[in-house]
Design a protein around this nucleic acid. Structure first.
Lengths: 122, 122, 122, 122
DNA sequence: GTGGTCTAGACCACC
DNA sequence: GTGGTCTAGACCACT
């Protein structure tokens, strides 16, 4: 039962998420060059192998490509970004809805509370 | 920079949250007796001291009281449930909004996406 | 009935009191750094966890703050000293009055005896 | 240094104090019979030997006398009681003054605070 | 080096 | 049986 604690994702996946967010926030421009594995390893404070694995995963997801001798580049795929944004949004919403349900909030309440919060925030 | 990884809350606080949710879901009735420290420790798969600390925190928050030699009891405070529900809702909303902002969603989008999701869910 | 014996406060609370007195006596300056948990543990001859608990209690009372990796510091709150002094004085007076009542002293006697004692003391 | 903690008096002396207070409060009348050693041991939840020692101490202090085959009796010594009352009062006052000094209160303050407290108490 | 958390195991007071 | 306290020793995150 104690297995639920410490439920953090593998570090390389957390890095994948972080990089995707950087791209969505346009801190990493489409078509632009990513930091080298070694650079990124220092910046993130992890082992270069961990970064390598994150980059490989991003390549598998068709988010970046590696060009031998040049480095790793973000693909210029606009649709992809939209898809990523949508899927992350969905994840966040699911998380929100699931937790609100747990404490007994109705759909109406979920929406009205959110609206109220955002208005206060302006 | 590696600091953000493994950023899970302390176990005793996770247990506090879980117990609060149990109370909100009325799995733990107001005025009712909590499992003993030792029982809960076995159920949760953690050390009794960790449960003890969680219970102490709940007592500090005026959610439970301990009666020497008898056990730990949920207070029978009617406002309590509402207060807890509100504060947890706020926490969930803040979490949702912050993450949505990170990937560049506008306030309008946060609301409309949520609505759309909830309708699909019916 | 044997319950009243050995009725000493928990060690960590005794340490809390002692530290508060040190602050009131300005042996611990406002804003100054407290001895580290380990140092204090050796000085007091108790387990570091016991000091940790005392420091946590002091933090809960808004008397000190901890800065990760730096240490524990006394807050620089000018009102703090007055508040602490008042609450401790009240505690001492209550203790005095309660004991005097137990042996049948009147309010008048409590005051006159005290005055007499203080004059002898000059 | 840890020796200062657990600084409680021996149990038999605590019992001596308690009995003296009972006499001062006239719960035990002058000249009256004390409970038997065995009775008192049960009432106090301690070993009869501990009570025996307390009674012996009280006899040494000329507060009680034992009459073979009859039991233990409080002496009818009015002066003694006054002396006891005085010495206990002195102890309480010393304790109060010493603690107030520790946190930097002046003699004037010790008196005025006490007066104020007693008035609120009426 | 700092404090924060967790475990294991002990003893105590109270019911 | 209950919770409350304390110790010893470990590992972690942060500076």
């Amino acid at each position: 039962m104690s297995s639920e604690f410490q439920s953090s994702q593998p570090i390389y996946m957390q890095i994948v998420d972080r990089i995707i967010i950087d791209i969505l926030q346009e801190k990493q421009s489409l078509g632009g060059k990513m930091p080298s594995v070694r650079e990124m390893a220092i910046k993130m404070g992890v082992n270069p192998n961990t970064i390598q694995r994150a980059y490989s995963e991003l390549e598998r997801m068709d988010i970046v490509e590696t060009r031998r001798g040049q480095g790793t580049f973000v693909l210029e795929n606009d649709d992809l970004l939209d898809q990523l944004r949508d899927s992350m949004q969905k994840e966040f919403i699911e998380n929100y809805v699931q937790k609100m349900k747990e404490i007994g909030a109705s759909n109406q309440q979920m929406i009205s509370q959110l609206k109220r919060y955002l208005k206060e925030d302006e």
